[in-house]
Nucleic acid binder design. Structure first.
Lengths: 191, 191
DNA sequence: GGGTTTATTGAGCGATCACTCAAGTATATA
DNA sequence: TATATACTTGAGTGATCGCTCAATAAACCC
């Protein structure tokens, strides 16, 4: 009996993710979302409930895609090469937004929206665990000094990656060169 | 003949800097500023002209204090030790906000306020130059391998610093440890 | 095709945004 | 003390914020 919705919810979340990623939480108004997703206010709230709820979905989608990408890459080219390739990937000049959406969200929302900031923080932690697994995997394959703490390496890698991705937003910084410098440090972890 | 203003403009800019730094541009409303600075709207606009204008002053104040701190420190303990000390300083748990105000501003405003974002970008560049001078100075004192490009070292250092400062906002990351790891890499630049 | 159910629509809600301005007040000079 | 001059005040501006809801349109089952 019921009429079925005419839009692809998953595709809308993807669009919303890109909008939020680029413009931030406060920088993206409901009007912006309605225009971009071609949704009237009523449909928007029927589909997602609130701006915050959609933002949470966008964050999850962002993190989930990131982990999937790293996992897939690791199966193809191995863990250490994956970590090095990721540095080049985030700096790819064809990408519209370079900075990490989780980091941007965490910074923007920490002082005014605890719930969403915590959500972003949790996903940052999940990414960190993903990096740690790659370092552990690299150690078991003899690519990284086994005496080093993989969790510590992961935190350092994530920190370097966030710095790189902020730097890459600027157009007066050679992000490629920076990515190469960071990748060179990964090679120095060899036993 | 004129009546003199009753407030200390410089102190107000400092207060505004801390508010903006912590809560961001969109996260700080005129009401917030009026409450914190104890200024009615009329006085506010007489003194600063607009929210954006005060934000610009706050950014300048932030960068100016940073450069002054580094310069003073370098005269006391030398350039390389200054760069290492700065890593510990930004992670000091007594500081209310860890992340770099220039980086936060740049990320938040790039997609919606070109003028202020460019201003923050220019100040980031000035900080980068300050770091490069310290590396050059360190090279001339034999503390850093003279074959390395000081500008490149500065970009890497600034990137690492930004990553560290974002990480330090999280309370599930041991920022002290991270700061030590980055400082250790500086020691490896020794000829 | 009739009846039911749900999606879609868009005008408009109260709240808040950055900001203005005319009236009132305090101070320095004369 | 009188006057000129600027600072201080806060009610109020139009615009935009996230969001609601009653009316309408469309798809399903029988």
């Amino acid at each position: 009996m019921p009429r079925r919705p005419s839009f692809d919810r998953d595709a809308l979340i993807e669009q919303a993710r890109d909008l939020f990623w680029h413009r931030g939480w406060a920088g993206t108004s409901l009007k912006d979302l309605e225009r971009e997703l071609k949704l009237k206010p009523g449909s928007f709230y029927a589909a997602f409930g609130s701006k915050d709820a959609l933002y949470a979905l966008a964050l999850e989608r962002y993190a989930q895609d990131g982990v999937a990408r790293l996992t897939g890459l690791a199966n193809e080219i191995g863990p250490l090469e994956t970590l090095k390739t990721q540095l080049q990937h985030v700096v790819d000049p064809t990408r519209e937004t370079k900075a990490c959406m989780l980091a941007k969200s965490y910074l923007e929302l920490k002082a005014q929206n605890d719930e969403l900031a915590d959500h972003a923080g949790g996903l940052l932690k999940a990414m960190e665990r993903c990096f740690a697994d790659l370092f552990r995997h690299a150690q078991s394959e003899g690519q990284v000094d086994p005496s080093l703490d993989p969790d510590r390496l992961a935190r350092r890698y994530q920190s370097d990656l966030m710095g790189l991705r902020v730097s890459a937003e600027r157009d007066d910084v050679d992000a490629m060169e920076l990515a190469r410098d960071i990748a060179d440090d990964l090679d120095r972890l060899h036993p």
